[in-house]
């Protein structure tokens, strides 16, 4: 890149004038809340009656959270959910993306159509699948019974509900993996494949030894973004399971919302939110470092 324009006096004015609204907004909407969140997490108080004041609690909120089996249960559930849906999305997305590399009639149209689910509101997705997964009159169980299996109470039992949620998240977000995977595959020059063909490598060998490793940097971005998004998943569970049956499908995000807005244990909710933030920011840091490495290589 050539050198940037010199920030002379008008330039400096422009920088300040153009950036300050956004900076102010973000300070107010991101920095201030996060700062307050950390602050609250050391206090016992409830947003219901803030006038009652805030009692210093030290680390007790954190101690309580880390010793509470209910919270651990939610972390374990979130972990299972993340693992399941991200694995399914990655495999499915890479496969479909690979298949869509080949040209055939109507490919571009199909590709565009396949992108649709990720553009939908998670609430619509959640309710739509809740409707389809109904144990009595849902179309999924109808198909299940067509193949001669017994109907499954998908959303009424903890185990199937986890799978159902993962299937719905996979439905929504596999297109995202397809989108990134095809972009990554397109970036591999044709001669690389020709060389491999002449060298006598089978299609599977080429896929695992050349296509996958060479698209790894982009697929890694896809992976991290999906880890972040599925780890903080909230909307989908509100619409699909409402956290149930019981509390078996409550994610960490769900637990933060419930603690803060149903029980109004604001201090405790803040502490849990801080833990959630740290995990997400850790993943984000990995992503940012990866991106700057990628940038440096170009």
């Amino acid at each position: 890149m050539d050198t940037a324009l010199k920030p002379r006096s008008t330039g400096r004015l422009m920088i300040v004038g153009f950036l300050s609204p956004t900076v102010l907004l973000l300070l107010f909407m991101v920095a201030y809340p996060i700062f307050s969140l950390v602050h609250y997490s050391f206090y016992n108080f409830s947003a219901l009656n803030p006038d009652k004041g805030m009692d210093w609690a030290g680390l007790s909120n954190y101690e309580y959270l880390l010793s509470d089996s209910g919270i651990w249960k939610r972390f374990v559930f979130t972990g299972k959910f993340v693992f399941l849906c991200v694995t399914m999305q990655m495999i499915l997305g890479i496969f479909v993306g690979y298949r869509l590399q080949k040209t055939f009639r109507g490919r571009d149209l199909l590709f565009t159509a396949l992108m649709l689910p990720m553009m939908l509101s998670p609430v619509v997705a959640g309710f739509l699948w809740r409707y389809m997964l109904n144990s009595e009159w849902g179309v999924v169980n109808f198909l299940v019974s067509l193949f001669g299996f017994a109907k499954v109470d998908w959303l009424g039992q903890a185990g199937p509900a986890l799978w159902a949620a993962a299937v719905v998240d996979t439905w929504m977000w596999t297109p995202f993996i397809i989108l990134l995977a095809t972009a990554a595959f397109r970036g591999i020059p044709e001669t690389i494949y020709e060389a491999a063909e002449v060298d006598g490598a089978s299609a599977a060998y080429v896929f695992f030894r050349i296509t996958l490793p060479m698209s790894a940097p982009v697929l890694f971005i896809a992976l991290i973004l999906r880890l972040i998004d599925s780890f903080k998943q909230y909307d989908l569970f509100v619409a699909l399971t409402g956290g149930g049956p019981g509390s078996s499908t409550e994610t960490v995000s769900f637990a933060v919302a419930k603690t803060a807005f149903s029980y109004f244990y604001t201090g405790e909710a803040s502490a849990l939110a801080v833990i959630l933030l740290c995990i997400i920011m850790g993943l984000a840091m990995i992503l940012v470092r990866h991106l700057s490495n990628m940038g440096a290589r170009h």
Binding site: P33, V256, L283
Partner: peptide, 17 residues
């Protein structure tokens, strides 16, 4: 970029008040 990463419920605890 952090606005893309933030879990909504985390900042919501504060926004709510």
């Amino acid at each position: 970029l952090s606005t893309r990463m933030l879990p909504p419920v985390a900042v919501l605890v504060f926004y709510h008040m």
